[in-house]
Design a protein around this nucleic acid. Structure first.
Lengths: 191, 191
DNA sequence: GTCTATACGAGGATAGAC
DNA sequence: GTCTATCCTCGTATAGAC
């Protein structure tokens, strides 16, 4: 079964926003990559703002499913935390930053609805990660810090900052690991 | 004494890139803000790329001077580290991200010369921070980690990620502190 | 659903007068 | 140094034929 045109548009658009940012991609870029005219894209997504809004909603759901898959596995909390970090690392293989991380840079020029959706993404991801940290604390696999929520925010900041920093280098995934793993280790080595 | 036009242009441009990013600011924006015609800006900076290149060079020097000021103070290593972190916090008062942090998001669309300058900024900043971490280790005010260089990269990633994350919130500087300070504390509390 | 054609403004840049 | 005038391209978006 073929992918629908609107799905192709979303895929290409996501790829472009995650590598270049919101302001630096256009309908013309998408049109070239999927072999369709600019005007046809407007049939599926009347305006760029609506396209990007759908993009973030779609991304949030997909990311959420990835997190669910991690939780539902039989892996230890340590392994789950590692898997979570590797979600970020793996995007780097194609120079892809977390969509919402990229959009925090473009935040000032985003329409309100997109800003809200980006904020919702972070709230959701922080809550998920805080819950994981809490489980690890209860299972005594790592120390209990005063606030899993704050801890989660910090880890997400680290992961996103590391993604952005690592892009300048030849082997980005390796650079990412070099930055992130020591930080994780210091929180996980008390197993 | 009045500020020169080219200095005004640089100031406004820096402000705009730090809040909106590379792709989302234009000569027209600058022209409006300083009350001059678009064409006149081209007299001082023939192309946008040259303007941004100067911008990053200028920023790197200014940031370097800020770091020197911290080093040359009589403050303890802990205080110096805090002052360094607060350089990032203070920009947030006007919604300003570190120029080079912002440009890592736009990295894929930057001209090579600007990419190189951004990389040089990080190399320089990492070296400076690694040296500070090393001094603190030698002075026994915090534990000696295997690699001050890697440690420095991680802290910079955290600071930049925290800057970007904090922007979505009402009180950004407070949100930044909430994320960053606990991480610093865990590395400084061994005083 | 996709096309052609087109409108309209924005963005970067240059020429030449003052 | 700054202006007006202008050029050209790109980006978003719409109308209407197929």
């Amino acid at each position: 079964m073929e992918k629908s045109t609107s799905q192709q548009i979303l895929d290409v658009a996501q790829d472009m926003v995650r590598s270049r940012g919101y302001s630096a991609f256009s309908y013309a870029d998408i049109s070239e990559r999927i072999g369709i005219r600019k005007a046809s894209i407007h049939y599926h997504f009347p305006s760029k703002d609506e396209l990007v809004l759908k993009l973030v909603q779609y991304y949030r759901e997909a990311f959420s499913r990835s997190c669910d898959r991690i939780v539902q596995s039989v892996a230890s909390p340590q392994q789950q935390l590692m898997q979570f970090a590797n979600l970020y690392r793996d995007g780097l293989r194609q120079g892809q930053i977390c969509l919402c991380a990229m959009l925090t840079a473009d935040f000032a020029v985003l329409p309100q609805a997109v800003q809200d959706e980006v904020q919702a993404f972070f709230q959701q991801t922080e809550a998920w990660l805080a819950a994981l940290l809490q489980r690890g604390c209860e299972a005594k696999v790592w120390p209990c810090y005063p606030s899993p929520e704050v801890e989660a925010k910090g880890l997400i900041a680290l992961l996103q900052g590391a993604q952005l920093l690592a892009r300048g280098v030849e082997d980005s995934p390796a650079a990412f690991e070099q930055i992130v793993y020591p930080f994780l280790a210091s929180r996980l080595s008390k197993a």
